[in-house]
Design a protein around this nucleic acid. Structure first.
Length: 283
DNA sequence: GCCCAGGGAATCG
DNA sequence: CGATTCCATGGG
């Protein structure tokens, strides 16, 4: 049984810094950063920088190759452990692939170490409204502009903008973030959430169909974007978003119909392996 | 310059 | 119903 995390301390400029280590076999931070489910996690000068929940997290590797998270144990226990879904049993997901499904076997093998993050629903809602008809680098660029212009300044960068901070803008101000025709969608979503018309916190406790309907009531949110919010924000692992890459996979290898029923309650995890594999090899 | 991107809404048949 | 068309912008 590998350890999920161990607290370590080291000295830096005369101060004691607490680092949390995460077993390298438990998760691949590099694959997660490149998996298309998050847009504010990037590999930079010898480590990985991540912004979420109003914080910046820097991740490096120690001599054993395990991950060192530059955060106190309280943040790890209260935020990052669940954020990275370190308690999830991904071996069970991977082992559920039928022996005859060569595509999913290859996808699971290639993507080993990917996990479905628990991100903030509000950030997922805005991020995936932006995502429509954009490639991932362009999505990241738009979100970076949003954060720099309208997010709160925090140490090392900017937080994701709050609903209130976007709701009070006009379209001209938002349009500077290269949102194109999505500008009105973003503004509507921000005002719905800020006014309380859409209570994102209350959605944690509603069932699949209700959550899907409530999210799709937002202008610019259709079946695909709603399922991305459900999967990456609310951790509804049964949600199976179909984008252009997944549609190509499903058409090519599954005659237009992916066998979601083989993965009860976690088809979305398999979707993520398939997406990462397909996009990496441009299948 | 060209093609396309983690789609959705409006329109048409 | 399903199929088609338009949408703004920038990355590769």
């Amino acid at each position: 049984m590998m350890e999920a995390s161990i607290a370590q301390s080291r000295m830096l400029r005369g101060r004691t810094i607490i680092m949390m280590t995460v077993d390298k076999n438990l998760i691949s931070m590099e694959k997660v950063a490149d998996s298309g489910q998050c847009f504010r996690m990037s590999v930079i000068n010898g480590g990985i920088e991540l912004f979420a929940y109003g914080r910046r997290l820097f991740i490096s590797r120690n001599d054993e190759g395990d991950y060192a998270l530059d955060c106190p144990q309280g943040d790890f226990d209260g935020v990052w452990k669940d954020y990275f879904d370190l308690d999830g049993d991904y071996a069970a997901y991977e082992n559920s692939v039928p022996a005859e499904d060569e595509f999913m076997l290859a996808a699971v093998s290639y993507g080993k170490g990917i996990r479905i993050l628990r991100q903030e629903p509000w950030e997922m809602l805005i991020s995936f409204i932006i995502s429509q008809r954009k490639n991932i680098p362009a999505i990241r660029s738009c979100i970076a502009k949003l954060c720099e212009r309208f997010g709160e300044k925090i140490e090392g960068g900017y937080a994701f903008p709050t609903p209130a901070s976007l709701a009070r803008l006009d379209e001209a101000a938002l349009a500077e973030c290269s949102l194109g025709y999505r500008t009105g969608y973003i503004l509507s979503a921000a005002r719905m959430v800020d006014s309380g018309d859409l209570d994102l916190d209350s959605l944690y406790s509603v069932d699949y169909a209700d959550m899907l309907a409530r999210l799709m009531a937002v202008p610019g949110v259709g079946p695909k974007v709603a399922r991305c919010v459900m999967l990456f924000g609310y951790h509804r692992l049964e949600a199976f978003p179909r984008d252009v890459w997944i549609n190509r996979v499903v058409d090519t290898h599954y005659a237009g119909n992916f066998p979601e029923q083989l993965y009860p309650g976690f088809a979305g995890v398999m979707q993520q392996y398939a997406f990462y594999y397909a996009r990496s090899f441009k299948i």
